[in-house]
C-alpha cells in the first residue's frame, strides 16, 4: 500500500467517524433540545380572559389606580392568580388602562408623584417621566411608552385583559 492511499483511506475513515459521531450526537440530543426549547416555541394563549376591574362610572379624566386579580396558567401548578394594578382614565369616551410597570427597569410608576406635581407619570427609581397617554418624555431614562391593557367595557363595567404594547401613542 503506497503512502498516498494510506492517508486517503485514513481520511475517509475520519469522515465516516465524524458522520457516525454526528448521528450519535444528533440522535441523543435532538429530542432533548426540542424538549428544552419547547416552552419558547409554544404560542401564548391568544386573547386571554378579560377580568372585571372597576365600574365605568367611577372613572374620570384623571388616572386612578385600580388593583385586580388576573389568572394565568403556570405549568403543573395550573391556574395561578397574580395581583396586577392599572392606571385607568377616560378620554373622549374611551377608557384607557396603562400598565404601571416602568419601561426602563421595571419599577412602578405613579401619577403626579414627581416633586413638581406635573400631570405626568413618574418613576421614582431613576426619575423616568411619561405623558398622560404613556408616552415617555425624551431626556428621561425610559426608551418606550408605558404598555396598555386590553380594555373592554360591558354593562358599565371595565374589563381588562393582557398587556400589549402602547398603541395610542403612535410611534414613540
Amino acid at each position: 500500500m503506497s503512502k498516498d492511499q494510506g492517508v486517503s483511506r485514513r481520511q475517509f475513515l475520519n469522515y465516516c467517524l465524524t458522520g457516525v459521531g454526528g448521528f450519535l450526537a444528533a440522535g441523543m440530543l435532538a429530542p432533548m433540545i426540542k424538549f428544552a426549547v419547547d416552552p419558547a416555541l409554544k404560542k401564548g394563549k391568544a386573547g386571554g380572559n378579560m377580568v372585571p376591574v372597576v365600574d365605568e362610572a367611577v372613572l374620570t379624566g384623571e388616572p386612578s389606580n385600580h388593583g385586580f386579580k388576573y389568572k394565568i396558567t403556570d405549568a403543573w401548578l395550573g391556574e395561578q392568580e397574580t395581583e396586577l394594578t392599572a392606571w385607568i382614565y377616560k378620554e373622549g369616551g374611551q377608557v384607557i388602562a396603562l400598565s404601571p410597570i416602568c419601561k426602563h427597569l421595571g419599577c412602578t410608576v405613579g401619577w403626579k408623584n414627581d416633586p413638581q406635581k406635573q400631570n405626568r407619570f413618574f418613576c421614582p427609581c431613576h426619575n423616568g417621566l411619561y405623558e398622560k397617554n404613556g408616552k415617555n418624555v425624551p431626556g428621561t431614562p425610559p426608551m418606550n411608552p408605558l404598555d396598555t391593557y386590553q380594555v373592554e367595557v360591558k354593562n358599565g363595567k371595565v374589563y381588562l385583559g393582557l398587556v400589549e404594547p402602547n398603541k395610542i401613542v403612535g410611534g414613540a
Binding site: 429530542p31 432533548m32 424538549f35 419547547d38 416552552p39 405549568a75
Partner: peptide
Amino acid sequence: NEVAFGVIV
C-alpha cells in the same frame, strides 16, 4: 404529557 418530546426524554 405536556412538553414536546417529554415522553422520549
